[in-house]
């Protein structure tokens, strides 16, 4: 390039104008991102600080936190959180175990089998499902599911109907659209090229799903399941309405249980800030938060593994 063209170019470009130099859009989005990080950090810090208070307060019987006895009104009071932690895990795992095959099957149907019109009906239906408030699920559970269990299955132990199974079934329905839509996206994200390549080799649709689609989308489907798990573990209201709220270690499906979330919603109005019972609820929040963080880290780890090949 000759010198004269260079000068011409620099004359054309000129000095950046004031507004350009200010670079407002960059500053705005940076501020937005910064405040988001700040808010999350403050929340985490706040919950963590309050969550450890019970261990810092003399005479709060903090050692009982790791026991199975939840007796906040007894003397001496005992704040065993194990029934809630195991309750949360039990209810969540059962819900995910029931929901996963259903959701992944539905997602596969939508992504690979369904005719266009069926997809056009089911997809908006799923979105509506996600938008239904949890109190509606809880209400349906308490007016239909719980009486149904009590009236038909009292012989096998559902004497009150409120139970581990009732909680898990309500959650199953609640997380079904979550898992389905994310798994569906994971299936759709598999390039059509790969499907076509497999089919062009003379494989059947099922072989293509089994050997190309599922391996290629495995990480995405796992992400869907874990996000469903996160939603199940975090759900408070609907679970509290049908689970029976009895702080015992889970031993059977017919048994009323309590979970971290259901117990927090149940007790938070009864406690006074600063007393050990209130502090124990904060500790429960912290544990819940840690479970959620654990799930998120799991998702990130899985996504990181996605591109092994």
């Amino acid at each position: 390039m000759s010198t004269s063209t260079l000068t011409a170019a620099s004359r054309l470009l000129g000095r950046p104008r004031f507004l350009d130099r200010l670079d407002l859009p960059r500053r705005l989005v940076t501020a937005a991102a910064g405040s988001m990080v700040l808010i999350v950090t403050l929340m985490l810090g706040f919950v963590a600080w309050n969550g450890i208070q019970i261990f810092l307060t003399p005479g709060s019987n903090a050692g009982s936190v790791f026991s199975t006895a939840w007796q906040p009104l007894a003397n001496p009071a005992s704040f065993g959180l194990l029934p809630f932690v195991t309750g949360t895990l039990a209810v969540t795992m059962l819900a995910v175990a029931i929901s996963t095959p259903l959701s992944v099957g539905l997602a596969l149907f939508l992504a690979e089998v369904a005719p266009v019109w069926a997809r056009a009906v089911v997809q908006p239906a799923l979105e509506i499902f996600v938008g239904i408030p949890s109190v509606v699920y809880g209400w349906l559970g308490i007016t239909i599911l719980v009486p149904w269990l009590r009236e038909n299955f009292s012989g096998v132990g559902f004497t009150v109907g409120f139970s581990w199974l009732a909680g898990s079934l309500v959650l199953t329905v609640m997380i079904l659209p979550t898992i389905t839509s994310i798994a569906y996206d994971a299936f759709r994200a598999v390039p059509g090229d790969l499907r076509a390549a497999s089919l062009a080799l003379g494989t059947t649709r099922w072989q293509t799903i089994r050997h190309v689609l599922l391996p290629a989308s495995a990480a995405g489907v796992l992400t869907a399941v874990i996000l469903g798990m996160t939603r199940a573990a975090g759900e408070a209201l609907a679970v509290q309405m049908v689970i029976g709220n009895r702080p015992t270690m889970p031993t059977g499906l017919t048994q009323p249980l309590s979970t971290l979330t259901s117990q927090i919603t149940l007790d938070m109005g009864n406690t006074v800030a600063g007393e050990p019972w209130n502090q124990a609820l904060w500790t429960m929040s912290l544990v819940l938060l840690l479970i959620a963080v654990g799930f998120v880290l799991l998702v990130r780890w899985l996504n990181g593994r996605r591109q092994t090949f």
Binding site: P191, D193, L194, A197, L199, L201, G202, A216
Partner: peptide, 16 residues
């Protein structure tokens, strides 16, 4: 399709 194979316009190896 087993008897008549197809090579696509864009190379599309499986992620394997």
């Amino acid at each position: 399709r087993r008897r008549v194979g197809l090579v696509f316009q864009r190379p599309n190896p499986f992620p394997m």
